Amino acid sequence: MSEKQKKATAYWKENVRYLFILLSIWFAVSFGAGILFKDALNTIKIGGFKLGFWFAQQGSIYVFVILIFVYVRLMNKLDKKYGYNE
Rank of each mutant, 00 (worst) to 15 (best):
I61K: 15
W26K: 05
A33D: 03
R17H: 11
F20H: 05
K50W: 06
S24Y: 07
D79I: 09
W12C: 11
F53Q: 09
A8K: 12
K4L: 12
T9H: 10
W26S: 02
L41Y: 01
F27A: 00
I46D: 04
F20S: 06
I25L: 07
L67T: 00
F69S: 01
F37S: 01
W54L: 15
F55W: 08
S60V: 05
A10C: 08
R17C: 13
Q58F: 15
Y84V: 05
I44R: 11
F49T: 12
Q58Y: 14
V29M: 02
Q58P: 05
F55Q: 03
I25A: 03
F69P: 01
K7E: 09
I44L: 14
F37Q: 00
A56W: 10
L36G: 02
I68K: 07
K7T: 10
I21M: 03
D39E: 14
T43C: 09
K45R: 14
N42T: 01
L19K: 10
I44V: 14
N85F: 12
N76H: 09
N76F: 11
S30Y: 08
N15D: 06
A8E: 14
F64N: 06
K81F: 07
L23T: 02
L36M: 07
E86K: 12
W54F: 13
I61W: 10
F49C: 09
A10N: 13
V65W: 08
A56D: 12
L74I: 02
K13V: 11
M75P: 08
I66A: 13
Y82H: 06
L74D: 00
G59I: 02
Q5R: 11
Y82Q: 04
A33H: 08
E86Y: 11
I44K: 13
R73W: 15
K80E: 12
K45T: 12
L36K: 09
F55V: 03
R17D: 07
F37H: 00
R73Y: 15
V70F: 10
F49G: 07
G47V: 02
M1W: 07
A40F: 07
Q57P: 06
L23M: 07
G47K: 08
E14Y: 08
M75S: 12
Y18Q: 04
G59E: 00
Q58T: 14
N15V: 05
F20W: 13
I21S: 01
Q58E: 09
F53I: 06
V72R: 15
T43M: 11
G32I: 02
K77V: 04
I46N: 05
S24D: 03
V63T: 04
T9V: 12
K7I: 10
A33Y: 11
Y84N: 14
F55Y: 12
F53R: 08
G32C: 03
G47W: 06
Y62T: 04
S24T: 04
I25K: 04
G48K: 11
G52F: 02
A28I: 01
N76R: 12
K38T: 01
L78Y: 09
I44H: 10
M1D: 07
N42A: 02
V65R: 08
N15R: 15
Y84R: 13
G34Y: 02
F27T: 00
F20A: 14
F49H: 13
L23P: 01
K7R: 15
D39A: 11
I35N: 13
V65Y: 08
N85Y: 11
N85C: 10
F27I: 01
R17F: 11
I25T: 01
